[in-house]
């Protein structure tokens, strides 16, 4: 990539030669914004490290003496980096983001779940007061299965096999199970 201001070759978001910042993307891809590969398996430390490195190039404090346009770019970039870090550090938001491009289910409520699954959750809820331990046990197993399932989907996708289309449905189910687990009496 070439610097828009002095046409030098760039090695980071900020030109080493003239100090100009790469213009922020209008519709930023959050992994790309941090300079990370699109992968589900990414350590929190890697995200923080990338965020730290890039923020040091983009933060408006670095452009206090620059033109209004460059200050605005710095503001936009840093806000994007902060958003990317917030979303990608959260495994569920990260999964939604990879599968749908949004860090949460769509406003219309997300994918339809099978009546069988909803029935199962309903019955577990009914039994929660009488046999909380048994319900907790069952729910934990359900959760472990969903986890393994998602893990498998993402691992294969990262190897270039299969796609992420089943992910939103799994994530929606996960949410039902997590809500159930949270609401169980201690």
């Amino acid at each position: 990539m070439i610097c828009w201001k002095c046409h030098e070759r760039l090695s980071s978001l900020r030109c080493a030669s003239c100090g100009a910042l790469v213009p922020p993307p209008a519709q930023p891809e959050l992994f790309g914004a941090l300079g990370l590969d699109r992968r589900y398996h990414v350590e929190a430390e890697a995200i923080d490290g990338a965020w730290r490195r890039r923020s040091k190039d983009t933060h408006p404090d670095r452009f206090a003496a620059s033109s209004a346009v460059e200050r605005r770019m710095a503001l936009q970039w840093t806000a994007t980096l902060n958003e990317a870090r917030r979303v990608l550090r959260d495994p569920v938001a990260r999964a939604w983001y990879l599968a749908t491009g949004k860090p949460h289910p769509a406003e219309s409520g997300g994918p339809k779940l099978s009546p069988e699954f909803l029935e199962e959750i309903f019955e577990l809820r009914m039994a929660a007061d009488d046999e909380p331990d048994a319900v907790r046990d069952t729910a934990a197993k359900l959760r472990a299965r969903l986890d393994a399932d998602l893990e498998d989907l993402f691992s294969r996708w990262e190897r270039g096999e299969g796609d992420l289309s089943p992910v939103p449905e799994r994530l929606s189910r996960l949410k039902y199970v997590d809500n159930l687990l949270r609401e169980l009496p201690a």
């Binding site: 840093t78 806000a79 902060n82 958003e83 917030r86």
Partner: peptide, 8 residues
């Protein structure tokens, strides 16, 4: 407590 700059 979101770090700023922050956008939505």
């Amino acid at each position: 407590c979101s770090p700023i700059p922050s956008s939505a």
